[in-house]
Design a protein around this nucleic acid. Structure first.
Lengths: 200, 200, 200, 200
DNA sequence: CATGAATGAGAGTTCATTCAT
DNA sequence: TATGAATGAACTCTCATTCAT
């Protein structure tokens, strides 16, 4: 998404970083552990990236790009898009690969107060995603599926925050039912309220 | 809370760890940096704790105990308690010390999938807090301030998840208005729905 | 001088080495830094020279050859040749390119106790230069401009040593006036003594 | 001389550095090689010195302090002091330990154009030594052993430069007779000229 | 000839931990 | 208790060199 044409080795490094991050976590992620997940040599990591931080910044872009592509691929009428968005965002099974992706992102996010570049890259992506959700709600209002008094920005932030929190709590506390429970509550207490009541 | 009578040195170490964690972040937290925030020597840290992990596990208990005490001190009728809870939990000013505390907790939480002991201690606390919120809602139903069809568990999880998510996003993206916006949306789209309409 | 007909690439490598050495110093001179000053690729350096040491040995010859050519081009009667020799050897302005050349030579010389090949190449050149100066003095005696009791070898060594020392101290301590001061003292206390007093 | 009371370990590190520098030369001097000459562990080097550069800067002070002490210990009338100074400074036998010291200093000096801190420390010492020599000459004039028209500063610089150059050439070209030859020439062509002729 | 990706050893440095005092 | 010197493993990063193209 951002470069369009990265070298094969570049991609292999990103994938190795992903595996290493998922397995060991950010705090104990080392170039050696990335290298262990990488077919080629450790020195090559430094040939392609000037420093560990540079590699990880590139990795954030790689992760976000995958995530943004996933989100952009959602199709359908606004209410279905919102449902699908929530499903992809939060209802992850334990074996879902997306769970690992979100954990990786969470770790990088927890690090961002101490790293300006991380924060900038993450903030940029956050704005994009928020705009996507607010856009869905706005479209829904225009098309008459959501109530006219729904505030797209507020709804978007509430949806994102609750899903993010649910995922975080689910991931970090090890309770797999957390995201699903919150997701259900989100429907019952929020989304059902802004739906124009046609058949319900 | 867990020992009742900790030594003064123990407390000083916990406070030093807190300062070091806030300043440097979990990933680059070292015994040396804790020691730098500590009046006494670095060797003494190992006299009191067998290992860094042991120290950090004790630190989690210390943090959670402070947090739980804070929450337990809330008084008043259920709807006011819920408001106050949300306020303390999420609406933190930028200079609020509680912001740093939550960031520290987030970092430890992001680490918990890689550390069983961290996860156990955090999960225990999470259950306590969730029970507190669910209890407030249940009390509110009993006392007739919340609607009878409100589900205490579901509401508690939704409230906690959205506030947690809002705080995380606010902290890590550097947008101070995030928690307040989500908090407002939470009132408007969730809490106002479960309040028994008396004067509104 | 040693091959007579070096390839153009060879010369470009020598010039790149010269620039890199002047900029970074011997101790932190790397093949990469030489390559950075070189139009073509880094791999090509190894195509032309089997190793870094080989390249640097060739570079010594290149430097000395330039230096010897410079000295050989001095013309005139013996006393003027000696003056000119000293002037070229030591009285370098701060911006003089010769200053960098002498610094490069000094660095290689400081390395020579640890590298037999460096030492051999440098010693050979040193003998040549010493013979040139002793020859000038001997010619001066024959032609009656220098006193008959002047010892060509001793004078040559004293002149060379003092100029070398002055340059070293000037270069490394950053005092630009050093060489000129010593040069003046050399005239006043040494050369004026061996001149046949005709018009002075 | 500079601190008066350095720890024993500090001194051991300086001595280990001296041995490593003499054996391998500055350009290939590594912390590992210093550690190899050191009884204790490599990590300890970094406990006592924040970086390699800091260690080497301290080492320059250590070397210069030894050298300055040596010079300060010379006693006697001015002409004898000057003789003794030259003897200690330059006439080193091949096995003389002072030869190694001067080579070490030369290497550090050759590095000083690329390292401000090295240059400052070396320049400070250079000024001290020059003042000592100029002081000897000035005393000699006052006491009537040197001619009144001798210029202390100019003589000091000429003496130092020629001896420095002789030593450099001797050390780096491997010709042991160099310093002695230049030293003799220095007497014959310079010092004999400034001596008040009493018995010669 | 020429390139630049790739390698593996080793550079300086950091770190949790130990231990004598 | 308390200190701070000391350790050794592991860290990020650099380097001369090789090799497929």
């Amino acid at each position: 998404m951002q470069n369009g044409e990265q070298s094969e080795t570049h991609t292999e490094i990103m994938e190795a970083t992903y595996r290493a991050l998922c397995e060991h976590g950010y705090a104990s992620l080392t170039m050696q552990k990335i290298s262990d997940e990488f077919e080629k040599s450790k020195g090559l990591l430094h040939y392609h990236f000037d420093s560990k931080e540079e590699l990880l910044t590139a990795f954030i872009d790689y992760l976000l790009s995958e995530f943004e592509q996933d989100i952009a691929s959602i199709e359908g009428p606004p209410d279905e898009k919102l449902n699908e968005f929530i499903k992809r965002f939060v209802v992850v099974s334990h074996t879902d690969d997306r769970q690992a992706l979100h954990l990786a992102l969470l770790e990088l996010r927890a690090q961002s107060p101490f790293n300006d570049r991380f924060r900038e890259h993450l903030a940029r992506s956050d704005t994009i995603v928020r705009d996507v959700v607010a856009g869905i709600v706005a479209d829904g209002i225009t098309q008459g599926v959501f109530r006219a008094d729904a505030e797209p920005e507020a709804v978007a932030q509430l949806v994102l925050a609750s899903m993010d929190g649910a995922r975080t709590r689910g991931l970090t506390i090890g309770d797999e039912t957390y995201p699903a429970t919150v997701s259900d509550a989100l429907y019952e207490y929020v989304i059902s309220d802004i739906l124009v009541e046609t058949n319900e």
